[in-house]
Amino acid sequence: MQIDSRRDFLRLMTQIAVSSPLILAAAARGESASPVAPQHFMLSANGWVPNNPHLPVLLYRQALSLSGDVTQQSEQALTHNGWPPQWVAGVFNFHHYHSTAHEVLGFVGGEARLMLGGPGGKTVTVHAGDVALLPAGTGHCNLGSSDDFLVIGAYPPDQHWDICRSAPTAAMRQRIATLPYPHQDPVSGQPQPLMSLWQQA
């Protein structure tokens, strides 16, 4: 698309903002309307935890608006962006993974230390406003959290999570490696940055 004037540029930026409630919320606070660039890292198979052989974990910092009804606004935004929520709760305090779904964790209250990748894996601290995208197979466990820790769990349409606490079968490994996902980033609502990071993996 060629942008020939300031008017064209403003029209384009308005279209992008309207397409994503999360970006629109940021713009309303006077922040950048650019998609949030997530941290990303691969996790290798770890004992009985398969992790994902092709897709990295994505961790978006301060991607959610923390004003107003944070939970309701975030649920609406994730739904709009192609990752409909299925629950609002916490994160289990035992190591587990999902073989039937990719998972978005939208942190809407408090903070926690999570271990990703299974026992002895990578420890991250998450705060209200952060979002994590865990590809199927990714081990995760709550090592400790504040009393007000609250999470939205969201998934691709027609995918429903299971709880796996032992090594996957060959069929489960195949499913983990080939599960489809929306071509919309859960935070920006646009193909990017999700499609660049997951297609390059």
Score class of each variant (00 low, 15 high):
residue 168 P to W: 08
residue 130 D to G: 04
residue 119 P to G: 13
residue 81 N to F: 04
residue 19 S to M: 06
residue 90 G to D: 15
residue 44 S to T: 10
residue 31 E to V: 04
residue 178 T to L: 06
residue 70 V to S: 01
residue 194 L to R: 07
residue 193 P to I: 02
residue 17 A to G: 08
residue 85 P to R: 05
residue 146 S to G: 09
residue 163 I to F: 11
residue 171 A to Y: 08
residue 5 S to E: 05
residue 197 L to G: 01
residue 139 G to S: 02
residue 48 W to F: 12
residue 63 A to P: 00
residue 20 S to V: 06
residue 87 W to S: 15
residue 116 L to R: 06
residue 145 S to L: 14
residue 128 A to M: 00
residue 64 L to W: 08
residue 19 S to Q: 11
residue 152 I to H: 03
residue 11 R to D: 15
residue 113 R to S: 12
residue 191 P to Q: 09
residue 73 Q to W: 07
residue 25 A to F: 09
residue 150 L to W: 05
residue 29 R to V: 00
residue 74 S to F: 01
residue 101 A to K: 06
residue 6 R to D: 14
residue 113 R to I: 14
residue 138 T to E: 00
residue 116 L to C: 08
residue 195 M to R: 06
residue 139 G to E: 04
residue 114 L to D: 02
residue 130 D to R: 04
residue 169 T to M: 11
residue 123 T to F: 13
residue 122 K to Y: 13
residue 83 W to S: 07
residue 154 A to Y: 00
residue 74 S to W: 01
residue 4 D to W: 10
residue 184 Q to H: 12
residue 77 A to I: 03
residue 99 S to A: 13
residue 84 P to I: 12
residue 38 P to I: 09
residue 72 Q to G: 11
residue 26 A to N: 07
residue 191 P to M: 10
residue 109 G to P: 09
residue 178 T to Q: 11
residue 129 G to L: 05
residue 115 M to S: 15
residue 54 H to Y: 04
residue 153 G to Q: 02
residue 172 M to F: 04
residue 16 I to A: 13
residue 91 V to N: 12
residue 151 V to W: 00
residue 56 P to I: 01
residue 112 A to M: 09
residue 16 I to V: 15
residue 194 L to H: 07
residue 14 T to D: 15
residue 190 Q to H: 13
residue 153 G to N: 02
residue 31 E to D: 09
residue 121 G to S: 11
residue 42 M to Q: 13
residue 13 M to Y: 10
residue 188 S to I: 10
residue 180 P to G: 05
residue 141 C to M: 11
residue 120 G to P: 07
residue 18 V to A: 13
residue 184 Q to P: 00
residue 125 T to C: 09
residue 177 A to I: 03
residue 174 Q to G: 10
residue 89 A to S: 15
residue 33 A to V: 11
residue 83 W to V: 02
residue 105 L to D: 11
residue 133 L to G: 04
residue 120 G to D: 02
residue 185 D to W: 08
